[in-house]
C-alpha cells in the first residue's frame, strides 16, 4: 500500500516498533558495542525506548510535535551515554520541525527527519565515514529525499531509506572510527559494525514495517 501522509497513530506505531526491534536485538547491539565500545548500547536503547513507549501509553500525544518532543525528552533523561543525547536530539528536532499537527505529508516528514539529522550533527559533529549512526542516517535520508523526487509515496521512500540504511550499516564495518568510544581503538576499530549504525538501521526497518502494515 502507498501512503501520501503519515498520521499520529502510524508515527506512534513507528516508535513502538522501534522499541520492539531494539529489545529483540538487545544482545546483538551489546555484542557490537563490546567489540569496540563498552557493551551497553543494547541496554541503553532498550531502556530508553522502553521508557518512551511506556510514557506514550500512559499519556498518548495529541500532536506530532508532542509525540516526538516527549520521546526525545524521555531519551535524554533516561539513557545517558552518547546515544541518549544523540537519539534524544534527533527526536526533539523532528518534533520541533513538525509542529502541532496531526499528520505529516511526505515533504513534511522529509523536512522533519532532515532537521533531526542536523540536530545529531550539531551535537555530535560526526562526518561521513566517522563510523557512527551518521553513516546510516545521512544516506538513508538522502535516499528518502531522492525517492520523493520520483513519487510522493512515503512507503516507497521509506523502503529506499531502509535499503540505504542497511548498506550504510554494513559499510561501517570497514571504517576506522573517528568519533565516539570506538575511536580510542584506532586501527582495532576496523572490522566491526558500529552499534549506533546498527540501531539506526532498525529505526528505518521499523518505519517500513509500520507503513507496510494495515
Amino acid at each position: 500500500m502507498t501512503n501520501d501522509t503519515i498520521n499520529l497513530d502510524q508515527l506512534t506505531g513507528w516508535l513502538t516498533r522501534f522499541r520492539d526491534l531494539v529489545t529483540e536485538q538487545v544482545s546483538y547491539l551489546t555484542e557490537l558495542d563490546s567489540a569496540i565500545g563498552d557493551a551497553d548500547h543494547g541496554s541503553n536503547m532498550t531502556r530508553g525506548m522502553g521508557a518512551v513507549v511506556e510514557k506514550i501509553q500512559a499519556s498518548p500525544a495529541g500532536t506530532v510535535d508532542e509525540l516526538f518532543k516527549g520521546a526525545g525528552m524521555t531519551l535524554v533523561t533516561s539513557v545517558g551515554g552518547a546515544s541518549g543525547p544523540l537519539y534524544g536530539t534527533f527526536f526533539l528536532r523532528i518534533g520541533t520541525t513538525a509542529g502541532p499537527v496531526a499528520s505529516l505529508d511526505a515533504p513534511g516528514l522529509a523536512a522533519a527527519l532532515r532537521a533531526g539529522l542536523d540536530g545529531v550533527v550539531a551535537r555530535g559533529k560526526a562526518e561521513a565515514g566517522d563510523k557512527t549512526m551518521y553513516d546510516v542516517l545521512a544516506p538513508a535520508l538522502d535516499a528518502f529525499d531522492a525517492a520523493l523526487l520520483a513519487s510522493s509515496d512515503i512507503t516507497s521512500a521509506a523502503a529506499a531509506a531502509y535499503s540505504a540504511a542497511q548498506t550504510g550499516r554494513d559499510a561501517t564495518e570497514a571504517l576506522l572510527a573517528r568519533k565516539g568510544r570506538a575511536s580510542y581503538l584506532g586501527e582495532r576499530s576496523i572490522g566491526h559494525i558500529d552499534p549506533g549504525a546498527a540501531s539506526t538501521s532498525l529505526l528505518f526497518q521499523a518505519l517500513t514495517e509500520i507503513l507496510g502494515e494495515e
Binding site: 545517558g80 551515554g81 552518547a82 541518549g84 543525547p85 544523540l86 551535537r123 555530535g124 565516539g180 568510544r181
Partner: peptide
C-alpha cells in the same frame, strides 16, 4: 572527554 559525558553535561 567521552562523547556521552560531554553531551549530557552540555545539556
Amino acid at each position: 572527554n567521552y562523547t556521552g559525558d560531554v553531551l549530557n553535561f552540555e545539556t
